[in-house]
């Protein structure tokens, strides 16, 4: 097995009496696309917040990119990228200005930012549009750009929280191609989604039900175990209990 980049053992998060995460245990490997599924309110967001260093766990051992989630959140933040379901670029800034800003907050030098901006624009075919405001771009382009910006600083892990919400099927497909490419380059992708076809694109999938991980395996094995032909049925079977 390859290197472990996220290691979670007995993660518990309580809000008062409510247990949002109940003894979660899982490991994520380098370069893997790890699907993190669950119905709304199952505790996904809480777990992601802890993994990103935004929130402190109640108990358990959590290690992200080699750093401890209790005391080394600053170091974790430097080694990860993040893109949320809500749109994360500034609409009133141009493409280049957005890239420069994000590069800046992750501490890239002006030279590096310039180099990577040129690369990125060329790859996305956006060189001519580089001085356009984000609000003038179609949603699909924005989403792709947001993902590229989230991995601009070449993080070890990128967290994608429902990255393809509200996007058409073609763009979603293109978006997943970008995810594959990132994973191929050694970036671990931790993704949540509500689209079950997307779940099948993941290397491994965990499904959360009521704060617990109810299943964790490759999509093929999950379908075999539950004797169904697609992930949607796996999900429904688990979520309904």
């Amino acid at each position: 097995m390859s290197e472990i980049v996220i290691k979670v053992k007995d993660l518990v998060k309580k809000f008062g009496n409510f247990v949002a995460n109940d003894h979660l245990c899982f490991e994520v490997y380098k370069g893997e696309i790890f699907g993190f599924l669950g119905a709304n309110g199952a505790g996904k967001t809480t777990a992601i917040k802890i993994l990103c260093g935004l929130s402190k766990p109640t108990s358990g051992e959590i290690n992200v990119a080699g750093f401890d989630a209790y005391h080394e959140t600053e170091k974790i933040k430097k080694s990860i990228g993040y893109m949320s379901q809500k749109f994360s670029l500034y609409e009133d800034l141009t493409i280049t200005e957005n890239i420069r800003f994000y590069g800046g907050i992750y501490g890239l030098s002006a030279k590096e930012i310039k180099l990577r901006t040129a690369d990125l624009l060329e790859k996305l075919n956006l060189t001519e549009a580089k001085d356009k405001l984000i609000k003038d771009l179609p949603l699909g382009w924005r989403q792709k750009l947001a993902f590229s910006v989230a991995i601009l600083h070449q993080p070890k892990i990128v967290f994608l929280d429902e990255p393809t919400g509200g996007v058409d099927p073609i763009t979603r497909r293109q978006f997943w191609n970008m995810i594959y490419e990132a994973a191929h380059n050694g970036i671990t992708v931790f993704v949540t989604t509500h689209y079950m076809d997307e779940a099948e694109y993941c290397n491994r999938v965990s499904i959360m039900v009521d704060g617990k991980i109810a299943a964790l395996d490759t999509p093929e094995n999950l379908m075999k175990t539950f004797q169904v032909e697609n992930m949607e049925k796996v999900f429904l079977k688990l979520a309904r209990g």
Partner: peptide, 14 residues
């Protein structure tokens, strides 16, 4: 509202 605050909080900025 735009969700950019989340991104900023996840970043190394304090």
């Amino acid at each position: 509202e735009l969700g950019t605050m989340e991104v900023l909080l996840v970043s190394p900025l304090k």
